[in-house]
């Protein structure tokens, strides 16, 4: 993959690998982000990995764009093929119900039963391609093809945090309440973003996520434990 460099104004630039959603390109971008972060270059600020590009903000009073560009390309050349191992999470989900309002209609449209939808959704492993749009919002790749579903033409105004969504070929866990045009099939008591927690963000780009179906009662119990400040899920050690 040949990287290209694109300016994003006078204090940011972007290294890009192609123009498609691609797991390998994404893995390289995340590895490059980790490398740049670790190097701690004076004048380099926020490092934002996305699907297939890395945005870097810099302070032109300390480092010029031309130098940042050279550093990025050097960093990319030096990448080994071994991906930085992401963490593994298992997220409990109560499928259907008020929040998962779309599951029956979607199942019907796809010729599946809601139980088959659940088995497909919770049987896959997802990759966190990037965090964006809202604090802690994880864009997940790896959704089985039969579950791909177009977004709504008119977004709904208030989808709660924890809603489990499908938008096109991507899956998501809502991190904050707000409007959304995605379709929703369940909810999790797990808070992917909580600014009052010592570690406000659960997921990082490159992490892997599996969903585990739980009954309504267990979901409520987990929600109470989370409300009491307990961390009900922990990442498994990196593979």
């Amino acid at each position: 993959m040949t990287p290209t460099i694109h300016p994003c104004g006078d204090s940011a630039l972007m290294l890009q690998l192609g123009d498609k959603i691609d797991a390998e390109a994404n893995a390289r971008i995340i590895a490059l982000a980790a490398r740049i972060e670790a190097a701690g270059v004076m004048g380099v600020g926020e490092v934002v990995p996305t699907y297939r590009s890395l945005l870097l903000r810099y302070d032109p009073e300390r480092i010029r764009g031309a130098e940042v560009e050279r550093m990025l390309l050097r960093g990319y050349e030096g990448l080994s093929d071994t991906e930085t191992a992401g963490r593994h999470w298992t997220v409990p989900v109560v499928y259907g119900g008020e929040v998962g309002q779309d599951i029956e209609e979607m199942a019907l449209a796809k010729g599946l039963t809601p139980d088959e939808m659940v088995a497909l959704h919770s049987g896959a492993e997802y990759r966190v391609y990037m965090i964006g749009f809202a604090p802690g919002f994880a864009y997940l790749g790896g959704l089985p093809e039969i579950l791909h579903t177009q977004r709504l033409a008119t977004p709904r105004q208030n989808i709660p945090a924890g809603a489990i969504g499908i938008g096109g070929q991507q899956a998501s866990i809502n991190s904050v309440a707000g409007p959304s045009g995605w379709r929703f099939i369940g909810w999790t008591p797990v808070k992917s973003f909580d600014p009052t927690r010592p570690e406000p963000f659960l997921f990082r780009a490159g992490d892997r996520i599996r969903f585990r179906a739980v009954e309504v009662d267990e979901g409520k119990l987990l929600a109470e434990r989370i409300e009491a400040g307990e961390a009900v899920i922990e990442p498994e050690a990196a593979a």
């Binding site: 994003c8 934002v48 996305t50 590009s53």
Partner: peptide, 11 residues
């Protein structure tokens, strides 16, 4: 439509 990427104030 592009594959979503990073933005900055001023984009």
């Amino acid at each position: 439509d592009i594959v979503s990427d990073g933005t900055v104030p001023g984009s």
